[in-house]
Write a protein that binds this DNA or RNA. Structure first.
Lengths: 139, 139
DNA sequence: CCTTGCGTTGAAGCGCGCTTCAACTCGTAC
DNA sequence: GTACGAGTTGAAGCGCGCTTCAACGCAAGG
C-alpha cells in the first residue's frame, strides 16, 4: 500500500510515467533522444532520466507533427532550428507553413478518394438490398 | 516519326503505358501482381503483360484505398473477397465501412493536430512581427 | 548477325520508424 | 547477501512497401 510512490517531489517524471502520459514507449523516448529529437533531458543521481514539464510540452508538439504525417527528418530539422534559438524563428515559421500546406493538400486528396469509396459503399448497399429483395420475392 | 506506336489495336496497354497512366511504376505493378493485389492480367504472344480497361479501373480503386491509408494487407483482403464473387459483397461492404470510419477518425485527429500547429504558426507570426517592429522603432 | 529497347523472372536490398536483445547498474526489500 | 524491479547502453532485428539487380528473352532495325 505504501509502495505506491508514483508522484515525484520535484515534479519530474520517470521514463515509465512519461511513456504513460505521452503514449510513446520507453524505447521510443530513448530513440528520439538518441537521434536528437529530444534533448537536454536531465538525469537523477542514479543516472536515470527525469523528464520535466517542458520536455512533455515539446513531446506533445512532436506528436502533433507526427500525427499530421511529418517524417522524422522534418521533425529533426525543426528540433535543430529550435536549438538555434530566437534567430531561427522565421525559418521555423516557414517550415511549419510548408508542412501545414502539405497536410492540407494531402487531406484534400484523401477526402476525394474517400468520396469515391463512399460511392462504392453506396453501390454495394444497393447490391445487397436488391439481393435481399429478390430472396424475399422468390420462392 | 512512324516509330511512335503508342496505341494498341486491341485497346490493351503495355506495362509502361499503364505505369504512365496510373502513376505506379512498372516494378510496383509487377509487385502488386506477385502478391495478389492484381490478377488475371493477360499476356501477349511474347509473354508480356497486356493491361485491359478493367485492370485500370481496379488499379484506380486500389489507389483510392492506398491514398486513404489502407495497408497492403487490407487491400489484399479486399482483393481476395473480390475473387470470391457475388457471395462476398456483404463482407466487402463491411470492410469498406470499417475503413471509411477509420479514415474519418484519423482525419479528425489530424485536423485537431493541425489546428494546434496553426496556433503555433500564429504565435510565430506574432513573434516575427514584434521583432520587425522593434528593429523599425530602434536606431 | 548483332545491337537496341522493352520486357521477363527470382532474389536481394533499402529507407523508415521503431522494437527487441543482451549485458549491465542501481536502489530497495527481504 | 541476494533477489527483484526499473532503469541504462549499443547493436541488431523487424515489418512495411516498394526498388534494384542480375540474368535472360524476343522482335525490329541497321
Amino acid at each position: 500500500m505504501a509502495t505506491e510512490r508514483i508522484e515525484q517531489i520535484d515534479g519530474t517524471l520517470t521514463i515509465a510515467e512519461t511513456s504513460e502520459l505521452t503514449g510513446l514507449s520507453p524505447s521510443t523516448l530513448r530513440y528520439y533522444e538518441r537521434i536528437g529529437l529530444i534533448d537536454g533531458v536531465e538525469r537523477g543521481p542514479d543516472g536515470r532520466r527525469r523528464y520535466q514539464a517542458a520536455d512533455l510540452a515539446w513531446m506533445a508538439f512532436l506528436l502533433r507533427l507526427r500525427t499530421t504525417g511529418m517524417p522524422i527528418q522534418g521533425m529533426l530539422a525543426f528540433a535543430e532550428l529550435r536549438r538555434g534559438g530566437d534567430a531561427t524563428v522565421r525559418e521555423r515559421l516557414e517550415l511549419l507553413r510548408r508542412h501545414q500546406a502539405q497536410v492540407r493538400r494531402k487531406y484534400e486528396a484523401v477526402m476525394r478518394s474517400l468520396d469515391a469509396i463512399d460511392n462504392k459503399i453506396a453501390h454495394y448497399e444497393r447490391l445487397v438490398e436488391e439481393r435481399d429483395g429478390e430472396s424475399g420475392r422468390e420462392a
